[in-house]
Structures are given as C-alpha cells and as structure tokens.
Design a binder for these strands. Structure first.
Lengths: 395, 395
DNA sequence: ATTAGTAAGGAAGGTCTACTAACAAACATG
DNA sequence: CATGTTTGTTAGTAGACCTTCCTTACTAAT
C-alpha cells in the first residue's frame, strides 16, 4: 500500500476505522447494466417490441435499438416477426430472447452420496440428466468426479452452453471459492475458477440453499423484496433475497439456520423431549428436528394423527425461530422446499400460525409462508438461475 | 399504460408474476457515484492528495482531478496546502472536505413528550440545541411544532445547511412518507416532501432505529457488512445495515423486533413469570421486558445482585431472539444503544453468551455484541448521517 | 380512393464521462 | 549537478446515451 493521509481531520471522532468496500463505476458498467435490463424484461415479460422495452426500461428507443442490435448480433435475441394484434401506427416488430437456443449445465451437490446434474434450457426445462455416485470419494477425488460429470453434461448439450452452475452445501464466497464444505472435504478450494479453467466454460458456484432462493426468485416468481427459502434435505439451510440480491453475510455464511438452538433445558421443563445431539457437536439444533432424516425418524411407524402432531410441533419450533427473522427483515415471503408430504401439512400450517402469533400483526399478517414453486428439480433450477444471474445479469 | 406483450413465451412456467424493480443507469449516475466515492474517502480518511484518491478509488488521476475541481467549485472541498512529510517526487497538495464549513439540522422524535433537535457539523459535532415540548399535540399540530423547531434550528446555524434529517418512530418509506406513526397520529404523511417545500431545504426522514444504525455505521465506525443496532428507549427498535445499505423490508417495517413474542405459556411452565400485556394488544413481547420503562420498573428498589439477575434474564431473552437473526444473516456486529447502566452489564454479557450458545460456533464466535459508539446524541447523529447519505452520498 | 393521424424504427449530431499519453513542476538523492 | 520520482495538468480518444428529425407502415376518417 501507500503511505496515506494524516490520521484524521479535527472533529473526526474515530471515524473510518473499518474498511469500506467501495468501487468505481464506469460508463461501460452502466451499459452492461442496461443491457441486462433489456434481457431481464425479455426473459420475464416474453417477446416485446423495441418500443415496449423502451417504455418499460425508461431508456430511449434509440438506445434500446442499439442494445437490441448488439444482443441480436451475439445471438442471444432474435426478431420474431410482426405483432399480430392490429392497432394504429406502424406494427411492432417483436424481439425475444432465444431461451431455447442456449443451454445451461446445472449441478446439485446437496446429496452426500451422489452428484446430480442436468442440461437445462434458459427457462429451466430439463433436457438431459446425469447422476454419478461419489462412492465415498472426497477432496480432490470428489472434484475430479464433479469435473467428469460436468464434461459429460457439456457433451450432452445440443446447444451452446452459457455456463455451469453448481449449488453446493458449505460456506462459499462470492467468487466461488469453497471456504469450507466438510462433507466433501473441501477447504479454501477455488472451485469456480478451477473448473472454469479446466472446462473452458464460465462456472458459478454458490451455497445450495442460497441458489435455491435465487431459483425461486428467478423461476418461481417469488418476490425479491424480502424472500427467505428454507431448504429441508439431509440438513437444513436457507437463502435470503433482499432488494433483489442474495444476502451473503460477513463470512459468506448467511442462511445457516440449521444450527440455531430450539430445544434447551428450559424447553424440556416446559414439556419438550430431551434435545437431540447434533452433528455440529451441540444439541437441540433446529436441524435435529427439521431435516429429512429427522422427520422420517419422527414419523416412521406413526399413525397419521400422531405424525401430524409431531410435524406440528416441529412447525412450531420453526415458527419460533423464524419470527425474529421475519420481524427484523420485514420479510414478504418464506418458502419451504422439500417433500410436500412432510412439509406441506401440519408443519407448514403450524409454522405460519406460530410466526403470526409471535410477530407484530402488521408484519405477520401479510406474510406468505408456502411451499416453493419449484419441484424436485428446485436445486437444479437454482444452479441454472445462478448462471443466468452471473453470465447474463438476469434474475 | 400500453397494451403490452403477449402473455408469455413457450417454456415460461409462470415466470415474471411479480413486479421487478428495475432502473436504468446513465453515465451521469456513474459520475454521481464516483463523486460520492471521492467525498466518502475524504470524509473517512481525512485530507488526501488527488493522487491518493486516485489510488484508493481506482479512478485515474485525471478523473479525480476533474471531480475534485467540481467539488472545490461547489465549496464542498478545499485545498489545504502541501503535505508536510517530505518524500521523493513532487510534494502532494492535500485536499479536504470542508466538514466544518457546512452544517446539518438533526431532529430526534423518539421521545413522546418533546422534540429534540440540534445543529451539527458534518462530522457530527453539536453546535446548538433546541428542545420543544409537544404538550400532547398530534397530527398536523405536531407537524407545525416540528416545522417551527426546524426553522429555529436553521436560524441558529451559522454555516450553510446541507439538509434536515429527522429520525422518527413509526413506519417510514424510502421517500420519507410516514406510513404510520401512532404516537404522533401520523398516517400516510409525506413528511419529507412537505417540510422540504415549507423550509426550502432538503429533508430526509427515516425510522429512528434505522437512522441510529446508519449513524453507528457512518460516525461510529461500525462495519457495514452485517450490522444490527438495537435501540432501547421508550420502546424497542432495531436497524440493520447489510452491504452498506439499510434494510427496509417489504412494508418499510424492517427492524420492528420489539413485538416478537419471547414469553409465552411454555416459558411460564419453564419458570418464567407471566407474560406482561403489551401496548400492541398481545402479551409477552420483547418490548415488555426490554425498554427503559420495563427495565426501570424491573430494577427499581432491587439490590445490585437482584438487578443483575433480572437484567441477565432479559439479556437471555434478547439473545434467544437475536440468535436466529444472527444466524440467518451471518451478522458481524450487534450494537446496543441506550443507558449503559442498564444495558452494558449483565444484560449485554448474558445476551452475547446466549447468542453464542445458540448459534453455530462459526457464526457466533466472531460476533461482536457491544454498546454503540455514539453517546446520548446517537439519535441525532443518525439523523445527521441520514442527510450525509441522502445529500452527499457519504455513509 | 384519399388524406390524416399514429406509432415504430433508424440516422445524424451533440453532450458527457472517463480513459491513455505526454508533459511540466517540484523535490530527494547519488 | 544530473537523475529519478511523484504530482497534477493538458490534449486527444472512445464509449454511452440523449435529442431531433426522418422514413415506413398501418388505421381511421372523409
């Protein structure tokens, strides 16, 4: 660094201790932003005329025409002929994003035993699938398996591939470096950069729960004004979208709600069963109640009524944990992702009731707590959304 | 509106249901951003040379020189002579923000009975104070009292005033419209626009707890990567700063954690006293335990040991409510604002211990939970920070 | 059939922004 | 004293968007 500046101006009371992230903005960044804006509208609104795009983006027709012509020359957008509906004036020429002419490779690493991948169109339709077993391999060997899977999927694509998106458990920073993913034995592994170099294709990597949230926002039509997606799988994760952007957190660990304590000795005194030990080394974590293994164990061999009672009690714990988050962030939507037969019943109903009962009515009343719109391919859709976001700026 | 676009392209599975906030970016916006960037560095790092600014912003010396010359012509920045420390090369000309040559009017509406205001320099030093009693006036009358106070403060300023910043309880949107502030009898009141027109000066209005958080970030040197400021006063509020920006929430009600339920019948079974009724119409809200009236009532006439026990139990409740938020957002810092004799002892210690005990060690271990750096003028500093942010882009 | 009127899209020219390249000024050092 | 280093400025260039004006193509009214 340079030797900078005298300590402080008079009157500064300790201002400026912390590093503030700053960044210059160049006109070309504005251009990229506006380009994404056009793509965004075409993606979500479907084919439009240039004039339509000008109206909805606020840019002039000239600028939109210019941006569109670049997008057409790149092949991302195509003219689709004249709009049929007749009105006064010159008929509009529709342009549309060529969402079926490009593909994305999406990989879901949520499962401990196997890697699931797919080739998808830009709209999230699955074109081909591949699944490979890990057979206990971890570390560099697991990376090699992942790389092979990606190659296979890239070969299976029958259209140009925009990029590879990977949703993985663990703590992953914005550059796609896996800070830690204990299940895979990955620590400080620059997975995105590494695969991008080996595959020769852009690669985006992010936490699986976070990508899931992004997927619900991009493909599921969820709001971006305050969204939390709770993913129930082997473990429990969550992703939060505020103001259209993923929340990452100080150490890139935002969304790790699986290990919030929800059962302690006070709860036992109030009538709860003993807290179960958790893989994290403590006990009573939410994940010990709300995860597929935990839910299956708790409902196995029970009558429907008994199961519902158990699921409701888990829903209540979830609601208790969600209430402060909903309040602090004034969330609009909380989505649950996982098997509907376990989640979309007493559990969900009780969770919503609990959140409503425990928050300011102003905050809780309008809250939506529902199942995610994405099916079992939600994780893959999220990984695809990651590519759309990273490569095209479309969310 | 126009008649837009056919419903959707084939393959769109319900994409684009919700309105996505978008906005074009023009080169002039980039310019404004870079201008703020320069001001920001001068504000926080103190006087620097143009070359220093170029290095720390990433802009070229030419561009920085250009921006600085504009700022100088506007009077916001001044040359301060040559840097004393001799090194090789041409000596640097220091330029600095003229923080003492401009003033800000800040008003704190947190108190139910009176309005506190001050004239402050841009660095947050108080130049003059005024306080007026409301005498029970509400609605338009309260607005009139506020307007008079602002006029008085504007007259008391002996330097040009950059703007008026107001921190008020209630739900307030980004445009400074008071959606609801029951204590004042304000509903859908465009307070910022109204006062700006009457006073002829830019006016910024935001929730008092949110401004407080902004103040800790701007003046207190708190991190912007994940900050929550919990303000304990007549009631309980909070503000959250993520990625350098205030979280506003779906209905502009982010930070309303005062009415999260923390005592219910299960807690009673576990040994807690009966939940107290709350002003919100429910019972057992955090605010019924953690607010100045509640804390004073709970500690009045108690021995220090008894008081500490009470405060610790309140701290525990706070910790239980904070744990899910800290986990979900991976917060870096939680600050408490209010009387240190009540907060900065057993309460804070127990709250931190509770959060740590109830969150993933990775998340809780590095968490800082401390008193805010701002003194009793914290609310005013926050209001001043609001003006800096709104008018100059400095946070 | 003709004439208005309306809307879409493109071409020309202008302004703004930041960049690169080159240079003069001012100082420390060998 | 010559040399090298750093600062800040001047001049020229490329990019990005804007305003204005024009042509094209269609509907609606006469």
């Amino acid at each position: 660094m340079t030797t900078t500046t005298p300590s402080a101006a008079p009157g500064h009371r300790g201002v400026g201790r912390t590093l503030r992230p700053t960044g210059k903005v160049l006109p070309e960044h504005a251009r990229a932003h506006n380009r994404s804006l056009v793509l965004q509208h075409l993606f979500h609104q479907g084919p439009s005329s240039r004039a339509d795009l000008a109206r909805s983006t606020g840019l002039t027709r000239v600028t939109v025409s210019d941006l569109v012509s670049v997008l057409i020359s790149e092949g991302l957008v195509a003219e689709l002929g004249v709009r049929p509906e007749g009105k006064v004036g010159k008929p509009a020429t529709l342009v549309g994003m060529r969402t079926e002419e490009y593909q994305v490779v999406a990989v879901d690493l949520a499962d401990d035993a196997s890697l699931r991948g797919a080739v998808m169109t830009l709209t999230g339709a699955v074109v081909a699938r591949r699944t490979v077993s890990l057979d206990g391999r971890t570390g560099d060997e697991a990376v090699a398996v992942l790389e092979d899977l990606c190659r296979e999927l890239l070969a299976a694509a029958d259209r140009p591939v925009v990029g590879v998106g990977i949703g993985s458990p663990g703590v992953i920073d914005a550059a796609g470096v896996v800070v830690q993913a204990p299940n895979r034995g990955w620590y400080d592994l620059p997975l995105a950069a590494l695969l991008a170099e080996r595959l020769g294709v852009p690669v985006q990597v992010a936490n699986d729960a976070n990508t899931h949230a992004l997927g619900e926002y991009t493909y599921g039509g969820a709001t971006g004004a305050g969204l939390m997606v709770v993913t129930v799988g082997q473990g429990l994760g969550a992703g939060i979208v505020l103001d259209g952007a993923l929340v990452r957190g100080r150490a890139h660990a935002a969304g790790e709600i699986g290990h919030v304590t929800v059962v302690d000795d006070r709860d036992v005194r109030a009538g709860d069963p003993e807290p179960r030990p958790c893989a994290c080394g403590r006990a009573g974590c939410l994940e010990t109640l709300l995860s597929l293994p935990a839910l299956r164990r708790a409902t196995a061999g029970r009558s429907p009524e008994e199961s519902d009672a158990v699921l409701a009690s888990v829903g209540r714990k979830l609601g208790v944990a969600l209430a402060p988050v909903v309040s602090a962030l004034n969330l609009a939507e909380v989505l649950l992702s996982g098997p509907p037969e376990l989640l979309d019943g007493a559990l969900r109903v009780e969770a919503l009731a609990t959140v409503r009962a425990r928050t300011l009515p102003l905050l809780g009343q309008d809250l939506v707590l529902r199942m995610g719109s994405l099916d079992e391919d939600g994780a893959l859709s999220g990984a695809a959304a990651l590519v759309l976001s990273g490569q095209l700026g479309v969310t």
